[in-house]
Computed example of a mutant assay.
Amino acid sequence: MSNIKSLNKWANAHTYLSLDLVRIALGVFLFAKGVSFISDTEYLENLLSSIDKIGGGMFLIHYIVPAHMIGGIMIVFGLLTRWAIIAQLPILIGAVIINFMGQMNIQNLLLALFTLAICLFFVFYGSGKNSADYYFKMEK
Rank of each mutant, 00 (worst) to 15 (best):
A112T: 05
S127H: 06
K5A: 14
I97Y: 14
V22R: 01
T115W: 03
F136A: 02
S6E: 13
K53V: 13
T41D: 03
I70G: 09
V28F: 13
L79H: 02
I75F: 05
M69F: 09
G94R: 05
A117G: 13
L17C: 08
L79Q: 00
L47R: 03
A67L: 06
I38S: 06
M1P: 10
C119Q: 00
G94H: 06
L80Y: 11
E42K: 13
K140H: 15
N12V: 00
H14V: 09
F29E: 02
L17G: 09
F114L: 15
I86H: 12
I85S: 01
L26V: 07
Y16G: 00
N46S: 12
V96T: 14
A95Y: 07
N3M: 14
W83R: 08
K129F: 05
M69R: 02
L113T: 11
I64E: 00
N3T: 15
C119H: 04
V65G: 07
F122M: 05
I70E: 10
G27V: 07
S6N: 15
K137E: 13
I75K: 02
F77H: 02
G57K: 07
A132C: 08
T81R: 05
I64D: 03
N108C: 02
Q103R: 09
T41H: 04
H62S: 12
A25W: 06
G57N: 08
K5H: 13
G102F: 11
G128I: 06
N108E: 08
E139W: 09
I86C: 11
I91L: 13
G55V: 00
M69G: 03
I61A: 08
A25I: 10
I106T: 15
N99W: 03
E139N: 14
G27Y: 03
Y63G: 02
F114R: 07
A67N: 10
S50E: 05
F121I: 04
Q107G: 08
I86W: 11
G34S: 07
M101R: 08
S39F: 07
S50Q: 04
N46Q: 11
K129P: 06
N12F: 03
I85V: 14
A32W: 12
S36Y: 08
A87C: 11
S49K: 04
G128Q: 04
F100V: 04
E45G: 09
I97M: 10
R82K: 13
V35Y: 13
N8G: 01
N46Y: 09
Y125T: 04
K137I: 06
V35N: 09
G128M: 00
L89V: 15
G94K: 11
I91E: 01
S49H: 03
I38N: 01
F31D: 01
K33R: 15
A67K: 04
D52F: 01
F77D: 01
I106G: 04
L7G: 04
F114D: 09
G94W: 02
A132G: 03
K53Y: 15
G126I: 01
N99D: 11
F122D: 00
G34L: 01
V28L: 14
A95I: 10
F37P: 07
I98W: 02
N130P: 01
L79D: 02
A32I: 12
